[in-house]
Design a protein around this nucleic acid. Sequence first.
DNA 1: TAAAATATTCAAAATGTATTGAACATTTCT
DNA 2: AGAAATGTTCAATACATTTTGAATATTTTA
Lengths: 193, 193
Amino acid sequence: MPPVKKTAFTKGGSLSEKKPKAPQASREANLELSPPPPLTAFQLESVALFIHVFGALSLPRSIGEIYGLLFSTQDPLSLDDVQARLQLSRGSASEGLRWLRSLGAVNQVYLAGIRKEHFTAETSLRKLASGYLRDRIAPHLENGPSRLSGLESSIDLASPTAHFEKSRVGQIAGWYKFFGKALPLVKVLAGKF
Amino acid sequence: MPPVKKTAFTKGGSLSEKKPKAPQASREANLELSPPPPLTAFQLESVALFIHVFGALSLPRSIGEIYGLLFSTQDPLSLDDVQARLQLSRGSASEGLRWLRSLGAVNQVYLAGIRKEHFTAETSLRKLASGYLRDRIAPHLENGPSRLSGLESSIDLASPTAHFEKSRVGQIAGWYKFFGKALPLVKVLAGKF
DNA sequence: TAAAATATTCAAAATGTATTGAACATTTCT
DNA sequence: AGAAATGTTCAATACATTTTGAATATTTTA
């Protein structure tokens, strides 16, 4: 049975401890230990929505959470911000951000005088789509030609089904052509949104 | 880290307790128990290729195997044929075929005088694409509008970020429009292959 | 350079999904 | 109807991915 992902975002109860944030007194400690601002209703809705969307592509929940948080937050967030607000592990936050970055779904922002890297969500559909196509679809099409010729050369020409098999190979070749045309088209179309 | 599926078709070492059951007297039984014809090179290549392709969509290996076998086989195959040739369990074969059928990727064939249902692969890209879009993509877009209005109503209008949040909602609305236009276009394009 | 801050890695644990196979249900045949 | 053949379901198990968090690596500051 094909995969189906759960979608509810229900980290509800877990609120941290620690005390309110005082302005930059003891270097880092205060920053690290101040409780993260709880998510707003808009952020919660947004996170839930993107868990759903990314889930439709069979991507892990943590990636949907991270993108949803950045999407719904105006200011750039650091890895620690993301980690604390979503209550993710450091590892998940790091990997998730790295993956989103490599796809181009998240932008790195350098803030003057602040060392931590900060991130914002990329919302241009063109960039999102082409990143996804580049990283997750194109790689499967690339070795297409070699696979196709492998398939073709596996045909036993003496067999009575050789003709049938050749037609199948032709079928697949047609599919590749389709993708060769459709993918660029999608990019162009996405550019308008 | 995003999902990555193994792709090698390596049932080779299945040295399990495949007892070479003694040929039975019953005429029917002979059919069932006769060892399935081993896969041809073309079929093996094909199965491997479709495990890969379906894997790119995060679909289970068994589904790729089944489609690959049917794709590379001229004659219609029954559930038992599929099960025996791929060494799948009955359950997997049944569920996999059912799923492929519901998608429209596999056609049911009724053979005169033969009771078992038989199946062939559907190779029309238009049918494959629209089945996939209908079953796996469209459902996620359907509750889009309600999600969108949920998101919109979660905006705290008093907040200083309300304007930003409204623009995000607008962004998502644009994405939905894109899909509304792109999906039909894909179907049309796929019709030519 | 040493210490602090930040970021990444990775083995183990937690979670989630696919597969199996025997029980159950259904249909067809005699 | 009873028997045989065929098809489906589902609880248990096997397998795979994701998450965690402590250890490690890297960069920055003083």
